[in-house]
Simulated scan of single mutants.
Amino acid sequence: MRDVDEMPGHLVRRFQQVAVAVFQAEVGAAGSDLTPVQFAALAAAQSAPGIDQKTLAGLIAYDRTTITGVVDRLVYKGFLERRASAKDRRAHELHVTAEGDAVLKQIAPAVEAAQTVMLRGLSEDEAGEFLRLLKKAVDAVNDLSRAPMRASRTGEDAGK
């Protein structure tokens, strides 16, 4: 059997631990307590005003239960609001508030710094190749996730 340090699942889990810690440290130093998933949801909602929760969940690859809690917390913080949909009275549209826009602007440099820190052991070319290969690997197993990516930011199905 391979050493655990040679297993992709273990290494990806470790990288996720580091990524969350680095994100929280950088964003915390910028004066925000947004978590990585809250940031992803808020940024996605900002780029798609009026998105519904189900579509948001698919866009950032989170299950419905998780996204409900995330949206609830963003609404509570005043960063996101739910509005009744003009198209479907049963649905709610999500809109980023002025406070949400402000916090995204405030932490943008910290989020970028976190990405740099996460890849600091790699040259620029290696970082590009790492991201390319990581995307390729994730796309190849997307359908095996309990919360597969359902749509890209351009509206196309993930993996295409």
Rank of each mutant, 00 (worst) to 15 (best):
A57Y: 00
S47V: 04
T35H: 02
D139P: 00
L80S: 05
D88I: 02
F79N: 07
D143I: 00
A127G: 14
R120A: 10
A108G: 06
Y76S: 13
L122Q: 12
A30I: 05
G78S: 12
A21H: 10
A48Y: 07
D143M: 03
S152K: 10
D52V: 10
E124N: 14
F39H: 08
V138T: 11
E26N: 02
I51K: 05
A127E: 09
G78Q: 11
R83Y: 10
F79R: 07
G69Y: 11
A61F: 00
A86F: 11
V20Y: 08
Q17Y: 10
E81A: 13
R73F: 05
V138K: 00
N142Y: 02
A127T: 09
E129I: 15
G58N: 03
D101M: 14
R132G: 11
G50F: 08
G100W: 03
F15S: 14
V27L: 03
D72V: 13
V12Y: 01
I67E: 05
K136T: 12
P36L: 04
A21F: 08
T66E: 10
T97I: 10
A110M: 05
A43V: 01
R90M: 06
D72Q: 15
K105P: 04
R13N: 11
Q53M: 07
A84T: 15
F39Y: 14
D125I: 11
K77E: 07
G50N: 10
L34Q: 07
A29H: 14
Q115K: 14
Y76T: 14
L74N: 02
L94I: 14
R150E: 07
D143G: 02
A127W: 04
A147M: 01
A102M: 12
K135P: 02
I107N: 00
K105A: 15
E124R: 15
K87S: 14
Q106H: 12
A48M: 11
A140I: 06
V117H: 03
V96R: 04
F15G: 05
R150V: 00
K54R: 13
V12N: 01
A113M: 02
Q106R: 15
H95P: 06
A151C: 05
E112K: 12
E126M: 08
A140E: 08
E81Q: 15
L56W: 02
A19W: 01
P148I: 03
T55Q: 07
A84D: 13
L94T: 09
L94S: 06
E129H: 13
E26D: 06
A98P: 01
A30K: 03
D101V: 13
Q24K: 08
R146K: 08
L104A: 11
A25C: 05
L133T: 06
R14F: 10
T66N: 09
A40L: 07
L104T: 08
T66C: 03
Q38T: 05
L59R: 04
N142P: 06
L80D: 02
T55S: 12
H95T: 08
A91D: 07
L131H: 09
S32F: 02
T97S: 09
R83I: 10
A44Y: 03
Y76A: 15
I51P: 04
A45F: 06
A114T: 00
M118C: 14
V70P: 01
S47D: 14
V12W: 01
A40F: 00
D88K: 09
A41R: 01
R146A: 04
R90T: 09
G50V: 11
S152C: 07
L122S: 13
